[in-house]
């Protein structure tokens, strides 16, 4: 199924080939292939410990070494540090929000702009990003003064400031209420409509199915399914390995 997708896709945004990671003798991720089109909305699901975060860390460069190779918009990312990948348009958020605690909300968003070639107009652009996530009113607050969902939105604003071609949202909705999940979903959809491809890693099934146009499933470090959400979720092995355990 994934082979078919690869063959029909002329100009992929992200291409991961045989990406794998071992810790000592433990195989956390085994030879995963993935091809993503520009502007695509991909959902990535799987039980805890199935290798989702390991995969994200391989793509983002958090692991200095892994097997296989990753290409973004035709350029090889292997060996590049996370900051170099970020500047090439690869943004990510973390499972737990990781703000710069001593900097104000505005300064948090200015940091990527200062180092991303927009130092001169960093403040204006940062305010624009904050307006996109509806945090402009809290620009002078410190991160610890924000609510949980606001911290998630700050994390997204910081990612948006990188002008990403690809955003990896790693459980960006964990712990939020129904209404808050909708807020973040709307935000991601708006961002996607503006051209950013999104990989959404999420345990909240409602959010993933609502958002994704394509779904892949990881189990025990392997990709076991790849396709349209409805078809993937109907596959017996997915139901058995993943949904059955939920």
């Amino acid at each position: 199924m994934s082979a078919a997708l690869q063959a029909t896709d002329p100009a992929p945004l992200l291409r991961a080939e045989k990406v794998g990671k071992r810790f000592g003798g433990f195989v956390a991720l085994a030879e995963v292939d993935l091809v993503l089109r520009p502007g695509e909305r991909l959902g990535l699901i799987g039980p805890n410990g199935s290798g989702k975060s390991t995969f994200v860390n391989c793509i983002s460069g958090d692991f200095a070494q892994h097997d296989g190779s990753v290409t973004l918009a035709g350029a090889k990312l292997d060996g590049l540090k996370p900051h170099a990948r970020a500047r090439r348009g690869l943004a990510r958020t973390f499972q737990l929000p990781q703000p710069f605690g001593s900097l104000t909300v505005l300064e948090n968003v200015r940091v990527p702009l200062l180092f991303g070639g927009h130092a001169a107009e960093a403040t204006e652009r940062a305010m624009a990003c904050l307006e996109q996530v509806e945090l402009a009113a809290k620009a002078t607050k410190l991160p610890r003064e924000l609510t949980q969902v606001e911290q998630r939105r700050l994390e997204l604003a910081r990612a948006i400031a990188l002008h990403p071609q690809l955003l990896i949202a790693d459980e960006a909705m964990a712990g939020l209420s129904h209404a808050e999940v909708d807020q973040i979903l709307a935000l991601l959809l708006r961002l996607n409509a503006a051209g950013t491809a999104v990989i959404m890693i999420e345990h909240i099934m409602r959010a993933v199915t609502e958002f994704s146009e394509r779904l892949i499933v990881f189990v025990a470090g392997r990709k076991i399914a790849d396709g349209a959400p409805r078809e993937v979720l109907a596959m017996p092995e997915v139901e058995g390995a993943y949904l059955g355990k939920q």
Partner: peptide
């Protein structure tokens, strides 16, 4: 880690 992720060398 977050600094690296948002492009700080």
């Amino acid at each position: 880690r977050a600094a690296e992720a948002v492009g700080v060398p």
